[in-house]
Amino acid sequence: MNDAPALLFDGVSFAYGGDPVLEDVSFSVPQGEYLVCMGPNGGGKTTLLKLMLGLIAPDSGSVSVLGAPAGDARGVGYVPQDAGRNRGFPVSVLDVVLMGRLHMPASGGAPGGSRLGRDDRSRAEEALGAMGLAHRRDDLMGSLSQGQRQRVLIARALAAEPSLLLLDEPAASIDREAGEVLDERLAALKGRITIVEVSHGLSAVSSRATAVACVNRRVYYHDKGEIVPEMLSLAYGTCPVELVAHGLPHRVLAPHRHDGNCDREDGGAA
């Protein structure tokens, strides 16, 4: 692998039909980080992820991924949000994970995937095992719970042996217990590859982040796995009492949080 940063945003702006979503975004993520992107709905988190994937192109500025222009980069694994839209789709768990093996340069399979290469099946099973679902490989995707489906989608991305993994709100729409299993599996990946996780809640930060980005039209990058109140007020534009009151683990707040000027700061914490 080269020494290029995993991600490099340089003066990136993007607008949907005249409405600016991201403005003048510049930051760089070294390889090996676990970056959690947080921010309000509509703040541009998903847009940021789509720019990294090359699914959309910036209006100005540039995005480079693993040293290549976004979209051309090899070694990017993508985990979309499972909205349950495909519940009735007739496909087995293993066949979903095998989608991650499409167009692998060294797999030896046929280009369009009519024939699997030598390694394809074992790599897919390995990835499924890493997500704790090896025993469900022959089951139908639709028979799994939401949390299990989300882990299958992570296994699918891992099957491509990525050096950068991009996750879009993996914990959204799954229950607490499934969320804990997911937290555990994701924390186990920390440090092995670069990971960018778009996350709604704050538990991702506490359990695994090595860097945090607050996304709200602009991006505030903080190279430690902690949240400082300035970031929250910058990102959300309000006092973070609401977030704190909903079970934010105490330790994710940096010690200097009392320097913030939110007078109700400790309202519901601890």
Partner: peptide, 21 residues
């Protein structure tokens, strides 16, 4: 000849694009 590409395209178009389909 292109079954797995078509399967991936049908199941998840964004992911298929990222994989170069």
């Amino acid at each position: 000849t292109r079954y797995r590409e078509i399967l991936c395209f049908a199941f998840d178009e964004d992911f298929a694009r990222v994989r170069g389909v």
